[in-house]
């Protein structure tokens, strides 16, 4: 190839990458780096002047009990939803994977529908459905002789209620993960084992479980990462209340950066950087998990 055509090719390569370089650069890469700078300044977002204050924002964030509260809520929420999402979906996926089950397409779609609907709208509608004074659930409970329950207003019930709704909303995603994993197991394996006289329990223990083990790691970590993106549901459902009992870190950041009468962008950025580090640590565990999962799968071949 002549040097001219090589140069032409290189030009085209970068033209093809240009939209991603510009858009991804401006709206993802730059913010990741800029967050660090903003976390070192004191700044209300309106004025041009940003005062460099060193690590004092971090000191403030670390000294703020409400930050630790939001940190705790985020992790506690994760502990509530991840096991439910990972294990219950496996159960349903195994049922929905059996070729003998009638109406299978219809059932899969029904369990998947909540995933595609707008989370923020679900949050608003659910707030009405669960309303203690006039919502249909409470009306029905009252008719049955129970008192109305304030699912979202009670400080002990709000987070578990949000967790149940979250699991319901995103159940379908993990279900699809498991269906994809189950489809990697060749059906002949089951048939051969059945001819050898294996029962259903044995099939599950000796074929399904070992074949799914590498996927368990991948699916668990994917699910954990997804629970960090929960602003939409929490904000519309509870707004962080009652008394910060459901304030996840994303709402904490939002409150300091946008909802306060005088925005404290430095403080919010410091919280955001810590949040980013938390997500990155889990992401690193993920890469390790995928790697370990691959090796597990490799060993079986």
């Amino acid at each position: 190839m002549t040097s001219r055509s090589v140069r032409l090719k290189t030009t085209w390569i970068w033209i093809f990458l240009l939209p991603t370089v510009v858009l991804y650069g401006v709206y993802t890469i730059y913010p990741i780096i800029a967050s660090y700078w903003y976390s070192l300044v004191e700044w209300n977002g309106f004025d041009a002047d940003q005062k460099f204050v060193g690590l004092s924002n971090y000191r403030e964030v670390f000294a703020d009990p409400l930050f630790w509260n939001s940190f705790k809520v985020t992790l506690f929420f994760m502990l509530l939803v991840v096991p439910a999402r990972v294990l219950l979906t496996l159960l349903l996926a195994m049922i929905l994977n059996s070729p003998k089950l009638p109406l299978i397409g219809l059932l899969r779609s029904a369990f998947f529908i909540p995933v595609v609907t707008t989370t923020a709208i679900i949050g608003v509608v659910m707030r009405f459905i669960l309303d203690p004074a006039s919502g249909p659930i409470s009306t029905a409970l009252t008719k049955l002789g129970f008192g109305g329950v304030d699912f979202l207003g009670d400080q002990h019930l709000a987070l578990p209620t949000a967790a149940v709704l979250y699991v319901w909303k995103f159940f379908g995603v993990t279900m699809i993960y498991w269906l994809a994993a189950l489809q990697t197991i060749p059906y002949e394996l089951y048939e051969a084992a059945r001819i050898d006289g294996a029962g259903t329990g044995q099939l599950f223990r000796h074929i399904t479980v070992p074949m799914l083990k590498p996927f368990l790691i991948i699916i668990t970590v994917l699910t954990i990462e997804e629970t960090f993106h929960n602003f939409d549901l929490m904000y519309t459902l509870t707004g962080g209340g009652p008394y910060f009992h459901t304030e996840i870190i994303e709402i904490y950041i939002y409150r300091w950066a946008f909802a306060a009468s005088i925005p404290q962008l430095g403080h919010a950025s410091a919280a955001a950087v810590i949040f980013g580090l938390l997500v990155a640590v889990v992401g690193a565990v993920q890469l390790w998990g995928v790697y370990a999962g691959r090796r597990l799968r490799g060993d079986q071949r």
Binding site: P31, I249, V279
Partner: peptide, 9 residues
């Protein structure tokens, strides 16, 4: 996996 809450500001 960069979350929106991190990049928003």
């Amino acid at each position: 996996f960069v979350p929106t809450g991190y990049t928003i500001i």
